[in-house]
Amino acid sequence: GEKRAFSRIVDKGEIPTCNILGVNIAAINIEWLLEYLKANVKSEDGNRLSGDYICVSNVHTTVISYEDVEYCAVQNRGLMAIPDGGPLSTVGRKRGHKDMFRTTGPSLMDELFKVSAQCGYRHYFYGSTEETLGKLYGELKEKYKGIQVAGIYSPPFRELTDEENREIIKRINETKPDFVWVGLGAPKQEKWMANHQGKIAGLMIGVGAGFDYIAGNINRAPTWMQKVNLEWLYRLIQEPKRLFKRYMHTNTKFIWLAMIRGK
């Protein structure tokens, strides 16, 4: 029945983790994650991950977690926090997790969308602007033949009233999604997912700028830059005003705390 969809059937113990600055980062790679999702999202007893969430974690979110106890709890309370930032997996491998590799939001989206038609996955997109969602929808339909977009919604920028929030939950759940992609940016999207844990019928994944990448608003770094952990530099060149202060603060702090002091 209804209740079943929201019960935690999954044993979180099967997800290996590496604690970095207090955040239990999943010590995994994209192949592992895709297998895991395939086994649990459309299983014989329905979507076992329904109502739960995945944080797509990087240096920025990990340093914020180190400085903010509540946000750290949000990162750790979901199904898992995957290593989107290259430095996270580098630290993880140094600490003995040899199969831990960078698992980014955009790559995860791409891999899941590619197998969507054959797996029968339904996707809901929550966040961003009407304009970006329109472009995203067009790109998805063109690039991933047969993909099922259950719904898209651009929420108002302000705080929602309780009534509006109930309405949104109802609206999302009526579309019966398997995946609910949340593009509100960090730390807002993680807090939103934590507040909706157990209420949303689908697995929530917070993908930050993922919507913008697919819509073509921003480009991903060349593969060679991604491989040597320089995607942050590429993004900095694209959005210097917005990202300079963030990177100066969080990158230096991460190097000092995680890489030098081993926290």
Score class of each variant (00 low, 15 high):
N58C: 06
G202V: 02
F254N: 10
L140I: 08
R48C: 00
I205A: 01
P240S: 15
E67Y: 04
R246C: 10
T104S: 08
E142M: 11
F254R: 10
K145D: 15
L160W: 05
W32T: 06
K199G: 08
W192A: 09
G185E: 09
K263V: 08
V149G: 03
E139Y: 02
E163K: 12
Y247W: 07
E67P: 02
L257I: 06
G185D: 02
I168Q: 00
E167H: 05
G138A: 15
H249F: 12
G202P: 05
N47G: 13
E174F: 01
R8C: 12
T62E: 04
G185V: 01
C119A: 14
A258I: 00
M225C: 12
S128W: 00
E142C: 12
K188V: 11
T104D: 00
S89H: 00
T252D: 12
Q148G: 01
F179S: 03
I147H: 03
G206N: 00
E139D: 12
Y36N: 11
C72S: 13
N29G: 12
L21W: 05
E231R: 06
I147Q: 02
R102K: 09
H60M: 13
K42S: 11
K3A: 15
I20W: 06
T175R: 05
G216R: 03
K42F: 02
T90V: 15
D178W: 06
T90A: 13
T252E: 11
K42C: 07
P177H: 02
G85C: 01
I15W: 10
D84R: 06
P177C: 09
W256S: 15
Y124D: 08
A215W: 00
D68H: 11
G183Q: 00
Y71I: 03
L236A: 13
I169Q: 02
K12Y: 09
L79T: 08
R242K: 12
K42P: 05
K176P: 01
D99Q: 15
E131F: 09
C119I: 06
I25H: 05
K145I: 09
F211W: 07
E44V: 11
G85A: 14
Y234K: 11
C55T: 11
I15T: 06
E190M: 01
R246W: 08
C55V: 04
I9T: 13
G85T: 00
N229V: 06
G198R: 10
N173D: 10
Y53V: 05
L257G: 14
G138S: 14
G208N: 06
L243R: 04
W232N: 12
V182A: 11
D84P: 01
M100Q: 11
V207R: 05
V180N: 09
V91N: 03
A209E: 09
N47H: 09
M80Q: 05
K94A: 15
A209R: 08
L33H: 07
L37S: 03
I20L: 03
A5R: 07
K241G: 15
G86Q: 13
E130D: 15
M259P: 07
E239I: 07
V23W: 04
N219E: 15
